[in-house]
Design a protein around this nucleic acid. Structure first.
Lengths: 176, 176
DNA sequence: GTCTATAATTTGATAGAC
DNA sequence: GTCTATCAAATTATAGAC
């Protein structure tokens, strides 16, 4: 799903990877929408859990943002794949309802997490402005991943991320 | 292709839209890769042609960038679809060779155009820095499109674009 | 929970008439 | 350039045995 999107994988493919038959996959996920929806929800929960508390006072803003960038860097370098919801998000109009809803939830959660990070920063008291930054940041990272993957050049990702981080103008409080 | 990606459309679907049979489509494009590759190349040429000369001294930097933003706004608002190469770029690893190459060419051309715009701006003499901005800008727009489409909220696109433009710090020379 | 078997449909693609 | 007809393979999905 992270390579070819919703229409780019099949029950037989998954079954072969797991080492069972496609009918057995259908036992766990009756329809394709069920499977994709479960994968998206699991993906979202895993990532949000990895990110941790966005308001942790022991973490500097830059450290939290670096952790966030690390998610995308990992997708590009280690997985050599797109962000699942980045790909599905671009396919929104061709997605079954629950899969589209799961993807929407992914972005809501990420924007919420980033908004909290920016809002907690000493330099940012306006929550709407923090949300603007959050939207811009997640969009930049999804875009950076997409463009770097298309160009087959991980350095493109680093250049975009570096350039973006330089625009954020956050405070850098030392951890306690 | 702009809704479901490379695996999200069929010869029969296209044939029905055009009002002919799928065998007739195969007469023009023997294989699916041929068709998709031709569409991507045509899409790229059209957009670059619409953008015009990035070094036109009669155009202010902000006017050129607004024209560029207009491409993506049109995709989101009027077409209600993703950028073709934004979607395909995220599917890179599942694409036939020539389609992947066409998508790569799309981003090379766009970065080149934007680099020229930023480099021509009075405030920017370093070409590498202009290229950094160019990569960041195209990534932000692809990401903004993707996230706004997924959230089903065009205002998200405008907020991200506004926030991004505010970080570019270009000169605003008056047209002659 | 996994299997075999299979249904019903769709897919990319070709042959050959007009 | 379009058509009918067709192929071989793949697709999602189900029924029922073990």
């Amino acid at each position: 799903m992270r390579e070819g999107g919703y229409h780019g994988f099949s029950f037989r493919e998954i079954a072969a990877d797991v080492g069972i038959k496609s009918a057995s996959v259908h036992h766990h996920f009756p329809a394709k929408e069920d499977l994709a929806s479960a994968v998206v929800d699991d993906y979202t929960e895993r990532l949000i859990e990895t990110l941790g508390d966005p308001c942790d006072p022991r973490q500097a803003t830059t450290a939290l943002l670096e952790r966030y960038v690390g998610l995308f860097r990992h997708a590009l370098i280690d997985d050599q794949r797109m962000c699942l919801c980045g790909l599905l998000g671009s396919e929104t109009r061709a997605l079954p309802d629950r899969v589209g809803a799961g993807t929407r939830n992914f972005f809501r959660r990420h924007i919420e997490w980033l908004t909290n990070v920016f809002h907690a920063d000493a330099s940012q008291t306006d929550r709407a402005a923090a949300e603007d930054k959050a939207m811009r940041f997640v969009a930049s990272l999804e875009g950076a991943l997409l463009v770097a993957q298309s160009l087959g050049d991980t350095d493109v990702f680093e250049r975009i991320v570096g350039s973006t981080l330089a625009t954020l103008d956050t405070d850098n409080p030392q951890p306690n």
